[in-house]
Amino acid sequence: MVTELHIKEVPQKQLGINPKKFILWLFMVSIVMVFAALTSGFIVRQAEGNWIIYELPSQLWISTVILVVSSLTAHWALKSAQKSNSLQTKLGLWVTFGLGLVFLSTQVWVWEILVQHDVYLVGNPGGSFLYVLMGVHAFHLISGLIYLMIMLVKSYRANEVSEIQFQLSLSTTYWHFLGGLWIYLYVFLIIYH
């Protein structure tokens, strides 16, 4: 189609993603780099030998499944907010929050099992690295839980739950990211432990 237009040098609008969303993505990049450093340190150190070998507790499967389910519920909460369904949004957020807590307690349970198998934080780095990877991930997961808590407070304060759908999409993105990060760590541990 050809149209005739009267144009005189219109400066183009520049590409723009929502800055807040972009900031969140950059923040996630920096977290990825923290874990890239730790996991590559793991590989480098392991290649030097003198590395204890132990069975990865099978309970990690349970925590992985819990975190995946919590991602689904977080997504459900977001979709419900977009449909202005206040009750389902709040329910979804509560369930996600609860599953997050269950995940953390499962991780602590895994640590207890590791201790029973004589794998300690202090000692051969083969064991220490596992604690550090799980610990630093748990630390970020707690930040995710605080974020969810803020969203829960906002969902109760908002007149209409769809008002907070943008903010909710950010917290959901972060939650999915934490889940994906855990899956990466778990697969990494299965391959390299």
């Binding site: 400066p11 183009q12 520049q14 590409l15 723009g16 993603i17 972009f22 950059l26």
Partner: peptide, 13 residues
Amino acid sequence: IATVINLRTDGMS
């Protein structure tokens, strides 16, 4: 980074 990518004025490619 977020500012350079997102807040450029019109025409500032």
